[in-house]
Simulated assay, not measured.
Amino acid sequence: MGQPVELIGVVVVLVGAVLAAVRQAVTVALRVGEPAGSLLLAVTVTVIAVALIVPLMISGGHGRRH
């Protein structure tokens, strides 16, 4: 991904998707109630974090040597 405009577009879409997922999880958590709602929010945040970190670990980053 070499173009800054593409990078900004990807970041905006990614942030929007994460915020939408968390908003939906909060809505469901409020309907479910405690303690399942808190567990649902914790799992949601964990899945989002893993989904963002694992591709970076697999790709090796920008400084990877072939």
Rank of each mutant, 00 (worst) to 15 (best):
V11R: 06
V22E: 04
R65T: 03
L7A: 01
V10W: 14
G2F: 04
V50H: 12
I48R: 06
V18L: 04
V47M: 04
G37M: 09
T27G: 10
A49S: 09
E6D: 10
P4Q: 09
H62R: 08
A36Y: 14
T46D: 08
V5P: 13
V22R: 10
S38A: 13
S38H: 11
H62S: 08
L52A: 04
G60H: 09
E6K: 05
M57N: 11
T44W: 05
G16Q: 03
G37W: 14
L56V: 12
M57T: 11
T46R: 03
V13E: 01
T44R: 00
H62F: 02
A17T: 08
V28D: 13
A36R: 14
L56S: 10
I58E: 05
P55H: 02
Q24R: 13
G9C: 02
L30E: 14
S38N: 12
V13R: 04
I8H: 15
L39R: 09
L19R: 13
R23F: 02
R64G: 08
V5C: 04
R23D: 07
V45G: 09
E6F: 07
A42K: 15
Q24V: 15
T27K: 12
L40A: 03
I53E: 04
L14A: 05
G60A: 06
G37Q: 13
M1W: 09
G37T: 05
H66S: 00
L14F: 05
V45E: 06
V26M: 01
S38K: 14
Q24C: 07
L7V: 09
L40R: 06
V5N: 07
